[in-house]
Design a protein around this nucleic acid. Structure first.
Lengths: 200, 200, 200, 200
DNA sequence: GATGAATGAGATTTCATTCAT
DNA sequence: AATGAATGAAATCTCATTCAT
């Protein structure tokens, strides 16, 4: 009786992880199914044993992980701390994820908003935007934030700023040590709350 | 010398413009060369008379547009106005492009990740980042902006925010009327200079 | 271990053999990749599973055949028989190939000029010339052949004569029955050793 | 009134000469019509003003020059000198042509026997083979040559040897100075009349 | 006569997916 | 479960020829 080195779930994960690396490297469209198999160290055909199509792999990556991030963000909201504290925590959650799995972040932030394949997922992405918008709006109601700016626009801008920093790290164009990440957290928070203007 | 209905440069532009529309409609990968030809109202083969490959068309669109954008940004820098005025003008330049040519913006934002191997483009994009960083740094020297934040991080964040707003408009997820664009300009400027914090 | 009807090497050969027949029938340029696949009884795409391009198929045919031919010629040289015997055997080897595989010869002689940019082939052909030259030179050292003629020129002339006879057979302009081939062997040998001159 | 630099006939010749060089360099099939035009220094379309098709150019080259060579050979035959003298003269005619126009020779000898385009021309080539065969046969009748060898086979072999030497020169694989050509004439003549065999 | 842009049929090549072992 | 050969639709690209100027 041979030793079962891999359970079915292990295999699935092995392929998904490989796909994340492969998609991160070349982009979803340019990435060939064979590259995923090679990256995972399994046979070509096995990819299709666990997934129906290349697209299903991307969808699975998305669903499996985006929800985790949403849950983390919603957990922050649930604590009912002041909005600026929440804002700071959300920035930390998103940026620190990069330290844990930069390839995953890259796939999530870049492919998912840009491919027509995931129209069905737009709902989930929208939830992230909505959460950011909600936090800003709550801050305005609480008087922590000023009312001059539209919450929606701030949410989108913050999302874009986060995405760009992550991209810079993933692409190696911005230095991304632990310390850089911490500094970025503080700076981004400061930028979005106090702005660039010189203090009196 | 006979009158030419179309100069070579006219034809090139005709095909490039058609490609922008076709890429915008279906995405680079999904768009067939035949569609570009049909959209341009020329024969299939003529596309290859003016460009070596479909990829070269995308490259050309990127380079041409970025160069125009860079020239505009550098023209702003050349005026030697205060950095906050410059910042505001650059935001306007970028966002108003959406008004002028939404298809073009759609292609730029959707396909920017498709051309990571066209490392030559990165140079141009990098120059845009550098310009934003320069303006922020100059503002800090002038005392218009505080010195607390790293210019580089602010530059990247602003780029990301701009790109995300354009994406939202392109994808139809953010309302993008003339008025929305004007408001977004003002708001983004306010966000980056004064931040969200409630005023005393 | 399951029994495989076709090993990878079998399939490769199956496609190469089909390509030889297809190239022989229509010529390399006129032959379509689909014809090779049909001739081999496999799907279109499988041809590209085993070869990168149509040109690689032709190259492979050339290299494989030349290597076999070279081995045969070198085997003759290794026997250390008198040079005239070696010369006769080499002539036989080359001309009898026509009997064994006329399609192959047809491709080799018809397409040899099509691959001038495949300079790698030239190496192998050059080795054949060298072998012929060596045999002649050895005969001159052994005193079997006279020293009046340059070995190199004789080698080239013999190669040309052999190729032209094969061409004549391939093109159907010379009768090429078994008997004709045998007579040609004897005659060519006689021509190159004793010449045309009337005997005293 | 502008000076007529080029007569129509001049232009035709200019294009034909360019085609000879282009065909010689890359082979008929691989040679593009545009290369002929560039080589001739004329506009693309002008090629089609003087010739109906690429194939017609090859045919024209063939017809224009092959007949000249045939006439030269037939002139040799007409002199009614001994067959060995005729043989020597024919060898000289063919080899010396190389000095005059190696590219032309290359196209004539290589393309013409191998392309299916010129089936109609086979007649003319056949005449060259026939002439060689006739000279050999006449020598046998005259007692200058032995009767052991079939005249047809000798004719083909000589044609092949000539072709190969020309190819070697054209391809730069054989040294081809005036002196080399003269020596080759003598040697080929000696080879075909007296053979390689050591003299008693 | 001269030009070179324009045409489009038809070729090669790619690659997601299937399937026999 | 695991393998990788097999499939073929659909894409990109080529280039001889035409034609308007």
């Amino acid at each position: 009786m041979a030793v079962r080195v891999h359970s079915a779930e292990d295999r699935r994960r092995q392929i998904l992880d490989a796909a994340v690396r492969a998609f991160a490297r070349r982009g979803y469209e340019a990435c060939r199914v064979g590259e995923i198999a090679t990256e995972a160290g399994v046979a070509y055909g096995l990819v299709y044993h666990y997934f129906h199509s290349k697209e299903e792999i991307l969808e699975t990556i998305f669903r499996d992980t985006w929800n985790l991030m949403l849950e983390a963000i919603e957990a922050v909201e649930a604590l009912e701390e002041p909005a600026d504290v929440q804002l700071r925590k959300v920035i930390a959650i998103v940026l620190r994820t990069w330290k844990v799995n930069p390839d995953l972040v890259r796939v999530l932030v870049r492919e998912v908003t840009r491919t027509p394949h995931l129209q069905s997922e737009v709902t989930e992405i929208q939830q992230a935007f909505d959460a950011l918008e909600r936090i800003v709006a709550r801050g305005q109601e609480q008087g922590v934030f000023g009312r001059e700016l539209e919450a929606k626009l701030v949410g989108w801008s913050l999302y874009g700023a986060l995405e760009e920093l992550l991209t810079g790290w993933v692409m190696g164009q911005l230095p991304g040590t632990d310390d850089d990440v911490l500094r970025a957290e503080r700076s981004l928070f400061a930028l979005f709350t106090r702005g660039l203007a010189a203090r009196a």
